[in-house]
Design a protein around this nucleic acid. Structure first.
Lengths: 202, 202
DNA sequence: GTCTATACTCCGATAGAC
DNA sequence: GTCTATCGGAGTATAGAC
């Protein structure tokens, strides 16, 4: 019984296995063999679907990017208040994490430290940052924040901080257990309120 | 001319080479051979000083931890105002980065995503978090912040966020160029002021 | 499309001389 | 303490049959 359930197509099983192993153990530390074993796929089949490990890594990152984007879309679709829409970033992270079962930090930031500069997967790291900055800028503008660029930079800082705290908690269990997302969201809300109050006074 | 200047002892050259390569290219992606080549040291010499790659990695992390701690110590020694001492974290990061020439993010968080849970270097990742939390808690208490645990958690979040923005900037150059440390420090200062104002009113 | 078996490179670590 | 030379194993990728 070395094979996984072969009901789903091989490509799908490979991506699922890669998603778990790359995220849990790191990309460089995960061998192709390990992915093959978990997916229950032979080497030749994998190389029929992906040009090599680099291509598999890129597909893994693309998959995460798409799921994350759709998760945020879904949360946004539930919000009407402009400020709530701006702060939806933190709610979307919470939903993404609970849905995907992510215990560690941000897969894209982890990949950024592991991949060489010319790796094909780099495209998705840039796409992640681009999505965050552009969307935050647009939402901040719609919410009436005076300086949308400034708002995007501030919320991105709080977002990164919250995700890194998850990574820290994974290595050092003895930390205070409060939810970094709640903290980051609260700080963001306070900051946005101050910005809007400043605008009203001006 | 494949050898580096052999003036310094081999162990020192190995640590210097490891410090550059592990940080720039990642730990798992850096082979022992690459470290040996840059240090101008033969394999046998390295294994006379370090039990293996894991031990070299642990020594690399210990070295970074010590330098970082001393840098923060030096900045703290220059500050007398309790609030300035609490915020010195961000100034210390700035000095550490300019001194060490770090263009990427936090070496400890990067290592946390790369190293398996039982790696000997894990001790220094915990030491890093422990130093941050304990020191921030003590400094916050001295500054008269009502809830020192809360303050430590908030400043740690801003600290992590700033460091991650550096990692992001390394992968996506098209971002707004402002200094994340300045932003994080400003947010921290505002938060601390609000805490102190709240205490005075209470 | 998928498998078994294998080629070949690179890595981490060691043996033994000086 | 330091070197040269090399071993054993793991890793990525391919060949060829079904």
């Amino acid at each position: 019984m070395t094979r996984a359930a072969a009901s789903r197509p091989a490509r799908e099983r490979l991506l699922a296995a890669a998603g778990e192993l790359f995220y849990e153990s790191g990309i460089a530390a995960t061998s192709v063999d390990a992915v093959l074993a978990r997916a229950g796929v032979s080497p030749a089949t994998m190389y029929a679907h992906f040009a090599g490990k680099d291509a598999l890594v890129a597909a893994y990152l693309e998959q995460r990017h798409e799921v994350w984007r759709r998760t945020w879309d879904a949360v946004l679709a539930e919000r009407e208040d402009p400020v709530e829409r701006l702060l939806s970033l933190f709610d979307a992270v919470g939903r993404y994490r609970s849905h995907e079962g992510n215990r560690r930090g941000c897969a894209f930031l982890a990949a950024a430290t592991e991949l060489p500069a010319d790796h094909p997967g780099h495209r998705w790291l840039e796409a992640d940052t681009h999505l965050l900055v552009e969307r935050l800028r647009t939402l901040a503008s719609a919410a009436g924040v005076p300086d949308p660029d400034d708002a995007a930079a501030t919320l991105l800082l709080l977002y990164d901080g919250a995700l890194d705290r998850f990574a820290r908690a994974a290595t050092t269990p003895g930390l205070p257990d409060d939810d970094p997302l709640v903290r980051a969201r609260a700080l963001a809300a306070t900051w946005v309120d101050a910005q809007l109050a400043g605008r009203r006074r001006t």
